[in-house]
């Protein structure tokens, strides 16, 4: 028990990286995902084709590979002209990756809205932009909430992949203690922390879902 309390403060110093990466990814990937989803339904074939290709590449390759390519590969490919700090690289890759997944989720949600909702808006004298932001999006959020919740939980766990570019998050610090002290306990502590985060995220998502349920 003493051992746990002795290493816990050190592990918790990595929380700002883990939580920071999680929050920044969520804040960046959600609006970007919505924009890509809109683009995927665009009239312009070239834009649609490019975005479909982007989503295909993002969803078809592992996040770890994307991280390594971005952090290690880009400097190599550009003679060190394009070098990102670890946190910046991680946030950029996570945002681009999660935007690809969320785009598909939002696209499905947008497609699920009946045409009548758009028609009613246009006949009522509401512009396309207003119709989308005030009428369509709130309904899309309700539809995609369960899938969005899954992605949030995946993101909490995926933050641990920052380890591959030596991002000093809770897993990185725990790994140091595990090797130095030849103990499994640091890993157990990190596992418990992740479980607490995912439980918290699940409760929050359920609460949001129940708020939406009243206009089922």
């Amino acid at each position: 028990m003493n051992y746990i309390f002795s290493i816990l403060p050190d592990i918790l110093t990595g929380l700002n990286i883990t939580v920071g990466l999680f929050i920044l990814t969520l804040l960046g990937a959600t609006p970007l995902g919505i924009l890509i989803a809109i683009g995927l339904r665009s009239q312009f074939f070239i834009l649609r084709w490019l975005l479909n290709a982007y989503v295909w590449i993002i969803r078809g390759t592992p996040l770890m590979l994307q991280l390594m390519f971005f952090y290690f590969g880009l400097p190599l490919a550009t003679d060190n002209r394009l070098v990102f700090p670890k946190m910046t690289a991680a946030v950029l890759v996570f945002v681009l990756n999660y935007a690809g997944y969320l785009a598909e989720i939002f696209r499905g949600g947008i497609q699920a809205i009946p045409q009548g909702q758009y028609d009613a808006a246009f006949v009522l004298g509401i512009s396309h932009r207003q119709a989308f932001s005030k009428i369509i999006l709130p309904q899309v959020f309700k539809i995609v909430l369960p899938s969005f919740g899954n992605e949030v939980i995946n993101l909490i766990k995926d933050t641990s992949l920052g380890y591959v570019i030596s991002l000093v998050d809770i897993l990185y610090i725990a790994q140091g203690h595990a090797v130095a002290d030849v103990s499994l306990m640091p890993y157990v502590i990190v596992a418990v922390l992740y479980l607490i985060f995912t439980a918290l995220a699940t409760v929050i998502m359920k609460k949001i879902e129940s708020n939406y349920r009243e206009w089922a």
Partner: peptide, 29 residues
Amino acid sequence: EPKNRGIAMVFQNYALYPHMTVFDNMAFG
């Protein structure tokens, strides 16, 4: 444009906005 035709329309499936109250549905435009 539909909004400039001076036309109002009632749809078969009502097309009400589920996230708004009755008042807001009617007042939205």
